[in-house]
Write a protein that binds this DNA or RNA. Sequence first.
DNA 1: GACACAATAGAACGATCGTGCTTTTATGGG
DNA 2: CCCATAAAAGCACGATCGTTCTATTGTGTC
Lengths: 201, 201
Amino acid sequence: MSKGTTTRRSILDHAIALASEVGLGGLTIGSLAEELDLSKSGLYAHFGSKEALQIQVLDHAALNFTEAVVRPALKEPRGAPRMRALFERWLAWDRDGVLPGGCLFVAAASELDDRDGPVRERLVELQQTWIDVVRVSVEKGIESGAFRRDADPAQFAQDLHGVMLGFHHGARLMRDPDAEPRARKAFERLLEAVAAVRQLP
Amino acid sequence: MSKGTTTRRSILDHAIALASEVGLGGLTIGSLAEELDLSKSGLYAHFGSKEALQIQVLDHAALNFTEAVVRPALKEPRGAPRMRALFERWLAWDRDGVLPGGCLFVAAASELDDRDGPVRERLVELQQTWIDVVRVSVEKGIESGAFRRDADPAQFAQDLHGVMLGFHHGARLMRDPDAEPRARKAFERLLEAVAAVRQLP
DNA sequence: GACACAATAGAACGATCGTGCTTTTATGGG
DNA sequence: CCCATAAAAGCACGATCGTTCTATTGTGTC
């Protein structure tokens, strides 16, 4: 791997950590360069603009997210186990992942939700694929008979996302130690609502 | 009302609108002054520091929120009607209130959730009183017999907050027109779960 | 209408922002 | 080892940031 790619990756690693705390807009070339013992211009040359840096930060975080949350969860069997893996791995990612400020996308979502431009558009794309992962997982659960035929996958996706955001708010901002068990309880109730009635043997 | 109080209020009105779009950190004295045809120093003199401005912005928004959401809802009868009023009025406040960027506290929460200092502390206080409004409303519902005795008010508060955040994400960032009906459905399910079994006459 | 004082303006400060240009240093294939 | 090229540094730019100071304008009171 060439030198440039190595340092670029190192920059992005630090950048996603920093952005998870101060937001994508709070990211500054100067502070990032200082943290990495690089010159501003040296760092800047890797991206060409702050906007390009922000987009690559989102992409880099999405890659990490896929590896840490999505891919392992999709190896679980369809139905409840897969949903539970998605949920539990997201919890772990937000709670004690590499990002000190928790899930970067939670911060980016409310930061960019009423701004326009390419950064917002990229975030929407990434968030849509995440929503789709959940939605499709529910659909597969229905097909395999684990979930009720009348379950609403899109509804489940929004509900689950709400549980996650409620957890993030309770745990991160309010520092409520009960936020996590409550999130688990809420998740289990969502799951019960879509679970197929067990066939008596 | 003295001149100073008038302009101060006008400043705060514009500031909460601006902050709902760009965040509390994105607020700048310069842009705010320009929008109000004031000099930077003239505006600045009203607050003495940006931190003080941010705190007053939060307080001002909380006052508006109480008037628009909490107070009217608390006039509704205990139980489901009051909960529904809290929820519906919050929806309206986030959807088409005076703030172009939606609920300011949603933006502030994920912006400040891993920063320290007096602004964060003030936000936590305000958010706690909101959470408490929901929690206590459930408790009153239990006392009045409208809700099950084994309902968990704190759990309901976090769940409801999650539904709201899920709606905000779906509607604001994803611009999904189905986010609102889904949020309503999620709310009704929360309500059903705590509703007392109806007594047969 | 004069006078105390509140409200606003004006100008400047050091710092930092994103960005461009030029030069130096490091890398790696022939 | 040479040398084209990649990577990084150095420096400067205009703009804007929050903040402070002093001066000017406005308001309300006896």
